[in-house]
Simulated scan of single mutants.
Amino acid sequence: MPTDSWRESIDAARDRRCDMFPMAMETPERTSYMSFTTPYLEVPNVIMGRIEAPFIERLSDMGDRPVGVVDGYAFAELLKQRYPSLQLVPVGSEQEGLRQLQNGKLAGYITTLATASYYMQSLGLADLKVIGRVPADWSLAIATRNDEPILHNIMQRLVSSLTREERENLESTWRNLRIEERVDYTRFWQILIAGLVITALLVYWNRKLGRLNRELAEANEALSRLSVTDNLTQLGNRSYFDREFPRSFQWCQRHKTGFAVAMVDADHFKKINDTWGHEAGDQCLQALADVMREHFRRETDRLSRFGGEEFIIFTSYEDASDIMDRLERFRTAVANRQCDTCQGSPIELTVSIGLAYGVPEPTGSPAEYLRQADQALYAAKGNGRNRLEARQTGRKT
């Protein structure tokens, strides 16, 4: 039965003037007057464009430009649901749609790959090409009028009898047009420029992040130093002593070398505070710390303010007489150095020192050395102050 358009064919089937379509796509509306076999052919859908049109990756790239599709095609209903912003323009037939595309009335035209191939060859449309793939295929079946179940059963048996090879031959016959993917250099340059901008931003951010990381590391290092530094004297504080004292002892214990700990106490310091005030007392402690730093500069020397006017020096040594000589020189330097105060009157300051020394035994403990140094300091104070008292605690070197 000849018709002028697909819309006329649909109307003829609805009016029972057409008994069968050899190829049709099932829709809910069509099942009210036609029965469909199982699909026997999957036909790819494409979007056609003029020869100068760039390849598109997705239908949304068409924007608000008019895109033609045959009026009444089931696929048109699906497109309206999936792409509501797509500007679909119904056309009467495939020929009309392709001609409108050729004449510039349409920016694109959606059809099947097989249909496009047929009409481009038969109509000589050399100035058109496939510019994109529509992400859905037509599932084509044989449609018969639904009041003829015998006819439907015959067609269903025919479809069911098709072998896999016959189905593949049908598909290969229909898929004979190549999609041309031309490079859209405008988009290429846009992507390239965007990539360069992103790369520049990443380089800038990495450098900034590196600088921030360095600043953060320096700040953390400064905080770490502050956490173990006495604010007044800038020597190690009690936390520093608690961390370093056992480490130093264990190192000497492992290497079987001499370990010495000296407790240093400023003599009559309470009298200085009571007479000259706490500010003058603080200046005396700072001066004492300066002298201590001048005399104990070796790599293994550790200096700490233990609390109040009490200080601790601990270190390793090879010769016991050497550590005693260093402590005596330090004691003498303190006694010979007057502490200048803000009142302008110099204050004389002396120190008492208690020393514990020796090579640590394998079962020895740093606490024992500290206890012996404290007893030696007590003896130095009892014997007149401004002196050094020593206790051998471990083995001789």
Rank of each mutant, 00 (worst) to 15 (best):
R14S: 12
F36G: 06
S161R: 10
D274P: 00
S60D: 15
L196A: 04
I312R: 02
R211Y: 06
Q392P: 00
L113V: 15
R133D: 09
I272Y: 05
R7Y: 08
R187I: 04
E318A: 15
S35T: 01
V228H: 04
Q100P: 04
L177T: 13
F296D: 06
A262S: 06
L79E: 12
D301W: 06
F241S: 02
D274L: 00
C284K: 09
S365R: 03
N383Q: 09
I272N: 05
R385I: 04
Y240R: 12
A219I: 08
V69D: 12
L151S: 04
P90M: 08
A136Y: 14
T341C: 04
D267T: 04
S224Q: 10
T233C: 04
A222K: 15
K381R: 01
Q234H: 14
D127F: 02
S365C: 00
L113W: 07
G384W: 00
I10V: 05
S352V: 05
E52N: 03
D64F: 07
H255N: 06
Q121H: 13
I193C: 09
T111P: 00
M263A: 08
A219R: 12
P84R: 01
W251S: 07
M1Y: 09
D127Y: 02
E221G: 15
P44C: 04
H268M: 02
F36M: 05
W251V: 09
E29V: 02
Q250E: 07
S352K: 09
S304D: 12
